[in-house]
């Protein structure tokens, strides 16, 4: 998909839904209908998030029959306990997630560039084999992965998670960048080559600046999936308290035999704040870039 289409997705399209034009009765009806439908969908999308958020401000006594109601007294009383459990793990998560996302993006960008523009014999095969890697169920490889980490002496370090997310992020990151670069006309590369620029130089001075939206997508994608990952986190850290991350720490609170729903809700919300913020503030860039690199037939 070319970038002009990407622009069109997010562009205002005045010719169809233009609000300044005088609308006929039928068109007016459809407009109202569309808005009502959109708002109903909005309500359905928001509902679970609303339940999560409001129950974080009700203090310790949160219970089911009252789950949909706004707090009678807004309080932050459950927040210190949730923070005590989640604060350090969340900082740790931020630390490793940022690293793994950046490394993933760089690797994905290089792979994507080569597979889109500097193909070698069998590069299509390589790409297809990479893609298949996106689809494996991770439970299936957990035991060998733990054994591998043990063998290379990585256990006990947060870098086990960096490694896992970088390696298993190669397929999706490569895919996004490859599709992104594929949309850039070859003439640009040709022109660079005529000027005597090397492959690396073309990448650095032409492709890299063009691929900022691709980076945004990959960074957000990897950030979210690493932040929300539970499977790798729980297995590869082996329960070590000095390696607890957001999801495993959250599981301490929500997964115990004794349940305090107030703290449970607060912690769940707290652990979701960073990714929610990312989607709130960077969502539209994400959308843009995602579409430019989506698995598109």
């Amino acid at each position: 998909m070319s970038s002009d289409i990407v622009d069109r997705i997010t562009a205002h399209v005045p010719s169809h839904g233009g609000s300044n034009k005088k609308l006929t009765g039928v068109a007016q009806f459809w407009l109202v209908f569309r808005y009502i439908s959109l708002f109903i969908i909005l309500a359905m999308i928001i509902l679970p998030i609303y339940v999560l958020v409001i129950n974080s401000f009700k203090g310790p006594t949160v219970y089911l029959p009252d789950a949909l109601n706004l707090p009678k007294h807004w309080t932050l009383s459950t927040w210190p306990e949730a923070w005590a459990a989640l604060g350090v793990p969340m900082m740790r998560t931020l630390f490793f997630v940022v690293q793994s996302s950046i490394i993933s993006a760089i690797i994905g960008s290089i792979n994507g560039y080569v597979l889109a523009k500097w193909r070698f014999r069998g590069s299509k095969m390589v790409f297809t084999l990479f893609l298949f890697g996106m689809f494996i169920p991770y439970q299936a490889i957990m035991i060998p992965l733990v054994q591998f980490n043990r063998a290379v002496g990585l256990t006990g370090s947060i870098y086990v998670l960096v490694l896992a997310h970088v390696v298993y992020g190669i397929p999706i990151c490569t895919l996004i960048f490859r599709n992104y670069y594929a949309a850039i006309p070859d003439e640009i590369i040709e022109a660079g080559r005529v000027d005597g620029a090397s492959m690396v130089r073309i990448y650095r001075s032409i492709m890299l600046p063009l691929s900022i939206p691709g980076f945004v997508v990959v960074l957000i994608w990897q950030f979210t999936s690493a932040w929300n990952d539970f499977l790798f986190a729980i297995f590869l850290t082996g329960g070590s308290p000095s390696l607890a991350v957001a999801t495993t720490a959250l599981n301490f609170i929500t997964g115990g035999m004794q349940i305090n729903y107030g703290v449970n809700m607060t912690a769940s919300f707290m652990a979701s704040i960073p990714t929610l913020l990312v989607y709130m503030f960077l969502g539209r860039y994400f959308l843009r870039g995602l579409l430019s690199g989506s698995l598109k037939g």
Binding site: I234, S240, S242, T248, N251, F252, G255, G256
Partner: peptide, 12 residues
């Protein structure tokens, strides 16, 4: 060092 993993009755 207490390596603990929660999950009702130790499922995880």
């Amino acid at each position: 060092v207490n390596s603990s993993i929660a999950g009702g009755a130790g499922v995880n």
